[in-house]
């Protein structure tokens, strides 16, 4: 009888503990989802702003603002969350301002860059995000060039490769430095109280 009572108590206590953990977990999840939603919106805004800026008159050269969000999300939320944000951004951007081809275009560059960054971020760590970012930029451009060659059926446009490599190194470094600064300021948004 006595032992049963104490067992009951223990069970009740465990239940309480469990529900508390659950609540904690839930609030963590809500925080995470909110952060993901905000980051998706921010990356969409960056994408739109960049599209509205006066274009650079060189094939395929662009700054790649929205990569900042992918990288920040990868560091403060994780790779899976960052991947979801990237996919959402590409789909939404294609719906708002694009065609099927621009979707294929974005997804080839974006996916390749994401895979490379997800692999290299572990090697170089958070302190050296700029290296990860340059790798991402190089493979982003490589992916887009590949799609361009396939879409137009003209291998001759691979002559743009050195131009794209140079631009990837420059823009990747800039984006990487910006991201490092942002991560330091944004890390607290997913930390539980």
């Amino acid at each position: 009888m006595l032992t049963l009572k104490s067992d009951n108590k223990a069970v009740i206590r465990m239940n309480v503990k469990n529900s508390k953990q659950k609540q904690n977990y839930k609030s963590m999840n809500i925080k995470k989802y909110t952060a993901m939603a905000i980051l998706t919106a921010v990356s969409l805004i960056l994408f739109t702003v960049e599209a509205a800026l006066p274009p650079i008159p060189i094939q395929g050269v662009k700054l790649g603002f929205s990569n900042v969000v992918t990288l920040v999300a990868m560091v403060i939320l994780g790779r899976r969350e960052s991947f979801i944000i990237l996919i959402m951004r590409i789909i939404l951007a294609s719906i708002f301002a694009g065609s099927i081809l621009s979707f294929g275009f974005s997804i080839a560059g974006g996916m390749l860059a994401f895979v490379i960054m997800a692999l290299t971020i572990n090697v170089f760590g958070e302190k050296k995000l700029w290296i990860t970012s340059v790798f991402g930029a190089i493979f982003h451009n490589a992916g887009q060039l590949a799609v361009a060659i396939i879409a137009t059926g003209t291998p001759a446009i691979s002559i743009y490769a050195p131009v794209l490599l140079l631009s990837a190194i420059v823009t990747g470094s800039i984006i990487g430095v910006v991201t490092t600064a942002l991560v330091a300021g944004l890390r607290h948004i997913v930390r539980s109280n």
């Binding site: 094939q59 065609s99 081809l101 621009s102 275009f105 799609v147 361009a148 879409a151 137009t152 059926g153 003209t154 001759a156 446009i157 002559i159 743009y160």
Partner: peptide, 13 residues
């Protein structure tokens, strides 16, 4: 550098 318009699949060389 050829002129390339990827969306319209046009290349001018």
């Amino acid at each position: 550098f050829p002129i390339v318009c990827v969306p319209n699949r046009l290349v001018i060389r």
